[in-house]
Design a protein around this nucleic acid. Structure first.
Lengths: 178, 178
DNA sequence: CTGTGCATGTAAATCGTTACATGATTGC
DNA sequence: GCAATCATGTAACGATTTACATGCACAG
């Protein structure tokens, strides 16, 4: 699923402008996928060319003109076909966790700070998910929200309960260096 | 942290060939970062140019020649400097979860199959982590392993306990369609 | 006799972000 | 006055993957 197909998917939920699609990426696909204007607008132009979406211009007096996109029947069919494909495996990349392999090069304070910030980062994630999903959203979206919260809560718990394992290690290094 | 710096980091743990570094990505950075030969070899050549690693050729009779890389003092310093930087935020992208937003386009069987495969995928992840981290590895690596297992276990639990939320939804659609 | 492991590398293609370009409006 | 929101787009750049190119050894 690339930006192109996700734009198509978002348009199955209702007409939208490129700007609104970008917001949908932030709201509905929150923490799951992000896309910049630099990828959304070209995708939308290409989809229009291929007749998978149609576009009507709305002139506005006090704002720049809008281009409102709607998915076509052909677009809907293409998207449903895309959904049939086997999903690609998840991709996860964490700078913080990769750094932790090399904690022996860091001071205890640095490790502590890194862990604190990582925990805080996950807590912010949870807040963003909770406020974004309370009440509003389809059952599927609530399910996904709950998933995000469950996984991040587990991460926080693990970090809090086991951080001493790598902090203690650094302590020893500090002591040994004296 | 790009491939370049991770190669440097892996070389702080001992000399290695490009081929062995690739394996280290799979073993030590398992599920955290992957890199292909197409990125490792050019990175190693560049690092050699910059004198951050040194390279000695080992001719082998029954195998192609090896190039064994060692990190230099300058390389070690550069890597430690890199570690001081604020880590970039995590990146997570899941095709499967993104697909789930659009479960209303899928049949109940498809949803069930997708969930089964996703759970199985996480279970395989956990097996890979467990076998890879039992006994061997530094405390930091064991900590990371434990983290991976904790997070994935939570994911599996959530999926098992809440899958009915999106499966039930599909049921209703099927029934309504009759 | 076929697949897997060892071993290195290049070039093209992919997919995306960042920065740039433009400009009005509204809230603090 | 300054930041944020609305609104669209292009071009350059970046990082990495994929496919290609080559080749021997060993196990099943």
């Amino acid at each position: 699923m690339d930006v192109r197909n996700l734009c198509l998917g978002i348009l199955t939920l209702g007409d939208a402008t490129g700007y609104e699609i970008k917001k949908a990426f932030q709201d509905r696909l929150n923490l799951l996928y992000d896309a910049s204007f630099g990828s959304i607008y070209p995708a939308l132009n290409k989809l229009t060319e291929e007749k998978l979406v149609s576009c009507r211009a709305e002139t506005q007096t006090k704002r720049p003109d809008k281009k409102v996109y709607s998915i076509t029947e052909a677009g809907k069919a293409a998207f449903i076909k895309e959904l049939q494909k086997d999903p690609l495996p998840d991709k996860f990349r964490s700078d913080t966790l990769a750094t932790m392999i090399f904690t022996h090069f860091l001071s205890r304070d640095q490790i502590t700070r890194m862990l604190d910030e990582y925990i805080q980062y996950y807590e912010e994630n949870i807040n963003a998910l909770s406020t974004g999903c309370d009440l509003k959203g389809s059952p599927a979206e609530q399910f996904l929200c709950g998933f995000g919260v469950a996984v991040r809560s587990a991460a926080i718990n693990y970090l809090k309960e086991n951080r001493h394992l790598i902090e203690a290690e650094a302590q020893q290094v500090d002591t040994a260096a004296e």
